[in-house]
Amino acid sequence: MPTLDIDRLDKSYGEVRALRGMTFSVAGGEIFGFVGSNGAGKSTTMRIALGVLAADAGVVRWDGRELDHAMRRRIGYMPEERGLYPRMTVADQLVYLARLHGLTPAAARRSMERWTEVLGIAPRRDDEVLKLSLGNQQRAQLAAALVHEPEILVLDEPFSGLDPVAVDVMSGVLSEQAAAGVPVLFSSHQLELVERLCDRVGIVQAGTMVAVGSIEELRTTDERRWLVDGPAGASWAAAVPDVRVVSAQGTRTVVEAAGPGPDDVDQRVLAAALAAGPVREFTRQQPTLVELYRDVVAAPVPQEVSA
């Protein structure tokens, strides 16, 4: 499968270093979640990939070749700020954009009809964009990114402002595009959704990629934590050596090994719980993407990045 490669991008705005060595790749058929705080460099990276901004250094490649204007026409882009013409109808706008990408009038019309149907805005085709709800404007914006049948999808906050039904529809569309071999790169602050939908995730801080991998790879840490659904309260767990209580709600207690600890600390936890009462569940817990993200962004910025 061809790969979209972001290779050592640098970008400054005056004295502000927006990107420093930004590097990652998105393979064909993969959904890649791009997460980070506001101002971390996500939108700047996407705009450089689209050619909207020029990088100070670095290169963006598709299938081993540096992206040029012709290749960028094959990208479907959805900006964070909605970029549709407010007084054009949805249908006219999508046909117009498809024609700009080289589709014939008939093909552009068919594609417009297909995507407005898939995204649930077919009844609003003849409405001006400004008359749509924010959620339907977001659907129309995604249709604009898809109407020319792109080979690459780059989406900046595509789920912003959507209700749960619309989120499911859009998630299904992105999964179908990936299944067809399209690399899908999208940014989002909805980390639970990213965790559910993405094959791999990159966490950005201060213009550089600080963690990247599959959810399972990112969640594999040296931290040892267990969930116990058994005796109410946490007094039984507080008495176990080399263990600290993370949380306790009713009968559900989360405990964590304090430091390296002995290899059998899990058995000690289980034995203490059983001694205090019946145990209905005892499972090893891995951190969620939300917890991983908090740990990463709370860490000090590396000196070479902050310089």
Score class of each variant (00 low, 15 high):
Lys131Asp: 15
Ser25Asp: 13
Met209Gly: 02
Ala140Gly: 02
Thr45Ala: 11
Thr45Met: 05
Val16Met: 06
Gly29Met: 06
Gly161Val: 03
Ala49Asn: 01
Leu50Phe: 02
Leu67Val: 09
Asp7Pro: 04
Arg20Lys: 14
Gly261Lys: 05
Leu53Tyr: 14
Thr221Phe: 00
Asp68Ser: 09
Met71Cys: 08
Thr104Asn: 07
Gly207Cys: 06
Glu113Met: 11
Ser247Ile: 08
Gln303Cys: 00
Met22Ile: 09
Pro260Gly: 12
Ser175Lys: 14
Val154Pro: 02
Trp236Cys: 01
Tyr85Leu: 10
Gln190Thr: 03
Gly64Glu: 09
Thr89Trp: 06
Trp115Ser: 04
Glu128Phe: 09
Val245His: 05
Thr89Asn: 09
Pro2Leu: 11
Asp126Ser: 15
Ala54Cys: 10
Arg225Leu: 05
Met22Gly: 04
Ala234Asn: 07
Gly28Arg: 00
Gly21Pro: 07
Leu191Trp: 07
Thr104Glu: 11
Ala106Lys: 14
Ala248Met: 06
Leu67Glu: 11
Val243Gln: 02
Asn38Arg: 01
Glu80Asp: 15
Leu4Phe: 10
Val147Ser: 01
Glu149Met: 03
Ala179Leu: 05
Leu155Lys: 01
His148Glu: 13
Ala122Arg: 10
Pro2Cys: 10
Ala91Thr: 07
Val212Ile: 10
Leu4Glu: 07
Asp168Trp: 00
Trp236Thr: 02
Phe24Ala: 07
Asp56Arg: 11
Tyr77Met: 07
Ala40Tyr: 02
Pro164Arg: 00
Ala238Ser: 13
Leu134Ser: 12
Glu216Ser: 12
Val290Glu: 15
Lys131Pro: 00
Ser37Tyr: 08
Ala49Asp: 00
Ala276Pro: 01
Leu193Ile: 06
Lys131Val: 08
Ala145Gln: 09
Arg114Ile: 04
Gly29Trp: 05
Arg74Asn: 10
Ile6Leu: 13
Val279Met: 06
Leu174Lys: 09
Ile31Pro: 05
Ser37Asn: 11
Val201Trp: 02
Asp295Gln: 15
Gly261Ala: 15
Gln177Gly: 00
Gly161Cys: 03
Ala178Ser: 10
Lys42Asn: 07
Gly51Asp: 05
Ile203Met: 06
Tyr77Trp: 12
Gly39Phe: 01
Arg87Thr: 13
Leu67Asn: 10
Asp5Thr: 15
Tyr13Met: 08
Val296Met: 12
